[in-house]
Amino acid sequence: MGAYAYRAPTNVEEALSTLAAEAAAGNRAQMLAGGTDVMVQMRSIDKGPRTFVDVKHVAEANELHIGDDEVFIGAGIASAVLNENDELKRILPGLIESADLIGSTQIQGRATIGGNLCNSSPAGDTIPALIACGAVCVIASPGGNREVPTEDFVTGVGTNVLESTEFLIGLRIPRPKGRSSDAYLRFIPRTEMDIAVCGAGVALTLDDAGICMAAKVSIGAVAITALVVPDAAAALVGTAVDDEALAAAADASSALAKPITDKRGTVEYRRKVVGVLTKRAGAIARDRALAL
């Protein structure tokens, strides 16, 4: 019978040695970011003892860096902090709105994008948005940092590529250049604070004539993990992202979706709605890019 413990390492090296020591002692270690999922799970479906390793004091996981070529968002940074950053909202509006959709003011004050990703729910709202904008997961590992594209991070319902001696430091996102923007939409039956029936993230780049040069589309809550939709992106590239192209992208998302029927919606409904969201998110991303 193990016990609960709490550690607050202040840098990556210390955090890795904490995880290694816990693993060597046969203890379960769990990284703690905002805690808004972990605390609820600890009282319901997952009550076992463990050592919490708080990522919020790890210096590298608290960095928020907006560079010329890249944006880095540390795994310990609360959503409310991101949402109060006007530059970040301007550069990556879709990603920030996906984080802002999650939970109440109180939840926003603690919850993190990194935590949402590591919780690895099929309905995690930031995951399709991260995939669309090309985010790469920076993972601290005993052999040195390793990087994994967001679309390869989640492996199943609540599971991901992290080993017990590893943790997510943060996300590296290529800074959108020129007329590039993104958007994320989800459908819920109320106005806020609910779990996605389905969601869609679109990031795209337009040339000076308004023709789409590059696009990435990802959909959520319609399979065990968020999916990349290459055919939807292909339907947008080379077009002015007009109604016809958006309709083709919508069809591609609907075709790729493999949803289940549950209390939030049926297979048929989710398949239909995820197409609609793809179309609408694409139009929003286009209009944002045109306005730049």
Partner: peptide, 26 residues
């Protein structure tokens, strides 16, 4: 005690949070 109702709201360094979703050690 699951972060849904806000009855336990407190401020941490001026930021509104649910005290039920935070460890005392934090």
């Amino acid at each position: 005690a699951t972060g849904d109702c806000g009855a336990c709201s407190v401020m941490i360094d001026g930021r509104l949070v649910c005290s039920c979703l935070m460890l005392g050690v934090e």
